[in-house]
Simulated assay, not measured.
Amino acid sequence: MIKLWSMKWQLMLYFLASSLLTLGILGFAQFYMPWDTAGGGWKFGLAVFAVLLGQAVGFVASRTFQRKVDVLHIAMLQLAKGNLKDRIQIDPIDSFHPVYKSFNEMAGALEERTRLLQEMGEERSVMERGSVETAVVEERRRLARDLHDTVSQELFAIHMSASSLPKVIGHNPDVAGQLMEQLIQMSHHAQKQMRGLISQLRPIELDGSTLEQALEKWFPEYCRAHELQGRLDVETEQPISEAIEHQLFLIIQEGMANVVKHASATEIELQLHDSGRQYVLQLADNGKGFERSAISSASHGLSTMRERAQKLGGDAEVLSGSGSGTTVRVRIPKFVKEPKGEASL
Rank of each mutant, 00 (worst) to 15 (best):
E111M: 07
E112C: 00
E112Y: 00
E112P: 03
T114Q: 00
L116P: 01
L116Q: 15
L117P: 00
Q118P: 00
E119G: 06
G121P: 08
E123I: 02
E123N: 09
E123D: 06
R124D: 12
R124M: 13
R124F: 13
R124C: 12
S125E: 12
S125N: 12
M127L: 15
E128V: 11
R129M: 14
V132M: 03
V132W: 07
E133N: 01
E133H: 10
E133I: 10
V137E: 14
E138R: 14
E139L: 07
R140K: 09
R140M: 02
R140P: 02
R141S: 08
L143Y: 01
A144S: 10
R145I: 12
D146S: 01
H148Q: 11
H148Y: 05
T150M: 13
T150Q: 10
Q153K: 11
Q153F: 05
A157N: 13
I158S: 11
A162M: 06
A162E: 05
A162W: 08
S164N: 12
S164R: 12
S164H: 08
L165K: 00
P166V: 02
V168K: 07
V168H: 02
G170D: 15
N172R: 11
N172T: 13
G177E: 02
Q178Y: 15
M180F: 09
M180I: 12
E181D: 14
I184V: 15
I184Y: 05
I184P: 07
H188K: 04
H188W: 14
A190S: 02
A190C: 00
Q191I: 03
Q191W: 02
Q193L: 03
Q193N: 06
M194V: 12
R195V: 04
G196H: 05
G196I: 06
G196Q: 02
L197M: 13
Q200W: 08
Q200A: 07
Q200R: 13
R202T: 00
R202V: 02
I204Q: 07
I204L: 03
L206T: 06
D207T: 04
G208I: 03
S209T: 08
T210K: 05
E212C: 05
L215Y: 09
E216W: 09
K217N: 11
W218E: 04
W218N: 01
F219T: 00
F219W: 07
F219I: 09
P220R: 03
C223E: 09
A225W: 08
A225T: 04
